[in-house]
């Protein structure tokens, strides 16, 4: 008898899924994503270094060369500051030249910090130059 009653009661149960709190859950998820996300847009300088064959000699005697000796900067063997180097590079009007004439050679001694290297790269790239790294003789 009791079994019958039980089975009848079971049949009447409705199988609805409670969806009332779905929107709350979803909005909480959105808030979580918004709080946890960090929108970062890094600031960069673009430097295109041609990856050609190694050359045993320089392109020509007139190719400008920047030397980094520790914290000192030399442009065509004359000591310059970062601002002066940028002025010299601007005077070359590299943007108006063909890509093969835009080459600026970059030589650095051991121990040159990245800070200096970066500033020179930034100056060359801002003046539309193409950087050619000079390798040490071994």
């Amino acid at each position: 008898m009791s079994r019958k009653r039980y089975s009848k009661e079971k049949k009447h149960r409705s199988g609805e899924i409670p969806t009332g709190s779905f929107s709350d859950i979803a909005f909480l998820l959105i808030i979580y994503f918004l709080v946890a996300t960090t929108l970062v847009k890094v600031k960069t300088i673009a430097a295109d270094l041609p990856s050609g064959e190694k050359s045993s000699q320089t392109q020509s005697d007139k190719t400008p060369i920047v030397n980094l000796r520790g914290s000192e900067i030399f442009f065509n063997d004359k000591k310059v500051s970062v601002d002066l180097l940028n002025e010299r590079l601007a005077e070359l009007n590299l943007g108006e030249k063909i890509p093969s004439k835009r080459v600026i050679m970059l030589e650095s001694t051991k121990g040159t910090p990245y800070e200096n290297y970066f500033q020179v790269l930034a100056g060359i790239s801002a003046n539309q130059g193409v950087v050619a790294i000079v390798e040490d003789d071994k």
Binding site: D48, G111, A122
Partner: peptide, 24 residues
């Protein structure tokens, strides 16, 4: 960082065909 540490990486990027976007 000194040149000996970072320059090989810069050269490697160039040799791999990448255009360097140096962050500053």
């Amino acid at each position: 960082l000194p040149k000996e540490t970072f320059e090989p990486v810069i050269k490697a990027i160039a040799a791999g065909g990448g255009i360097i976007e140096a962050v500053g």
